[in-house]
Design a protein around this nucleic acid. Sequence first.
DNA 1: CCAGACGTTGTT
DNA 2: GTCTGG
DNA 3: CCAGACGTTGTT
DNA 4: GTCTGG
Length: 220
Amino acid sequence: MCGRYALPEDPDRVGLFFDASTRIVDAVPPNFNVSPTQTIYVVDEMTDERLVRNVAWGLVPRWAKDSSRAASLINARSESIAEKPSFREPFVQSRCLIPALGWYEWNRPEDGSKIPYFIFQPNQDFTVMAGILEAWKNPETGQWLRTAAVVTCDASKSMEHIHDRMPVLVEKADWSTWLKGTPEAASALFMKEHEISSHRVSLQVNSSRNNGRELIEAVA
DNA sequence: CCAGACGTTGTT
DNA sequence: GTCTGG
DNA sequence: CCAGACGTTGTT
DNA sequence: GTCTGG
């Protein structure tokens, strides 16, 4: 799940939404069809301040020899995140929030087709997903690459007809708990229920080469 | 001790 | 880096 | 996540 | 079938 989503259009609005005092961020072109390895926005409190940053989607472990598998670790199962070698340190030390307009899930009818849906929280500017951050030093160039993964959980009943997994969502009242709470307190957010809406969208979204606001709009 | 893995999804 | 398997 | 490629030799 | 690119 959650291998494609729609990015907020304006990082300044992201900063205001999260009351982030500082931004280390470059605006990226509007992207309604974010795919693994692309640049996204995250919010964290690794320093004393709440920051909005650009990172690449797809976690590259600190010990990785190269970044060739960056597209593999785009999700981290909440059920095992505290134990998995690639995720446990980031889970304890560097959690982040990942703002989205909403995300996509595909339904696979028996005819083998792939029907895309856009899923979002109604009456909210952004849907906020739980994430973890990592930093990897490219041994060839010495450059640091910051990456992130989206934490996942069982889907709530309202979207069971589409897919059985979904991102862990974080409401405003819980932002600080996810960013700065103990791992135990953060884990409690895995169980929360949320109000979500969904609608069918164009097959155009299936190809990551397509983009545009129309991708998130409902089709009959 | 060293070598090799380290992840998720979905589908079969 | 750290854990598991051999 | 889905879509699309998946190869070599030799010649321009 | 499996891997890479987006």
